[in-house]
Design a protein around this nucleic acid. Structure first.
Lengths: 135, 135
DNA sequence: CATAAAATAATAATAGTTATCATTTTTGAT
DNA sequence: ATCAAAAATGATAACTATTATTATTTTATG
């Protein structure tokens, strides 16, 4: 049985996608990325964006965030960190918080499988919406 | 301005949905629930299932789980607990682990909004898939 | 029982995403 | 530089999960 390796050629479009995600820390959706990149690549196809987002996620270059909205979001920061989603405006922001790497071990204690990672999504009101509501 | 309250009438279909979710702790999808309930209600509509799942989630009777698959899952256990999703078979299971209620406070420390809750999804290999792979 | 409000079934519509395929781009060898 | 094979693209169709619409049925209540 031959183990076949896939070779990956570079593409200007993929580079632009990576560049966008890394530059703007907005946790954008496929559609947001598509619209932004259209400025430089007017003919880019939405399918190309999706195809590359899937590939980049598989490669571990970016991370996919599934936090309950109607579409997926993507994160260029692959270092361990957590997210906050505002119940009111829906914005997703990074949370600066103390290290909680011990969580995986804690979860493994009474578990017979193998835990390799986790995603945490915090919910509530962001500062802006909080101020808005108290008026 | 009149604050209008919505009155909710009982329905056999909704009762069956709640009963199914509470009985089978599978974290089922809308489609799974639909197919199961069809046995007792052959004419039930998929729209009815979705409508009630949304309502029940709003009421806090059940919880919606967004853990990255193509569709949402639902949980009849609304007490705080965490979930494990197997990267291999996709099964979702509850994790028995020590109390980590302090997480919200920890996350609030350097945050200017208001954190009211969180969802944690652990990933890895479940026991069955782990054994399978090591053969 | 009569009436109004709520819920349903059937179905159409929408949105996000994936698949298909002919054409173009990239790569690596000559 | 040229050429061929593999990879990537753009255009578009197809698919799937979910929501919206509407006429009919069910539920609650005086």
């Amino acid at each position: 049985m031959k183990t076949q390796t896939r070779t990956i050629n570079k593409s200007r479009q993929r580079d632009a996608i990576v560049n966008y995600i890394m530059t703007y820390q907005n946790h954008p959706t496929a559609d947001t990325i598509y619209n932004a990149i259209k400025e430089d690549f007017p003919n880019i196809s939405l399918g190309t964006v999706y195809r590359n987002l899937t590939l980049l996620t598989e490669l571990g270059t970016i991370k996919k965030l599934s936090c309950g909205g109607s579409s997926e979001h993507f994160d260029g920061d692959t270092t361990p960190h957590n997210h906050f989603i505002c119940n009111c405006c829906g914005n997703i922001t990074d949370l600066k918080m103390d290290n909680i790497d011990f969580l995986n071990e804690l979860a493994s204690k009474n578990f017979d499988g193998e835990i390799s990672g986790h995603n945490i999504y915090f919910y509530g009101l962001c500062c802006a919406c909080k101020t808005q509501q108290s008026k």
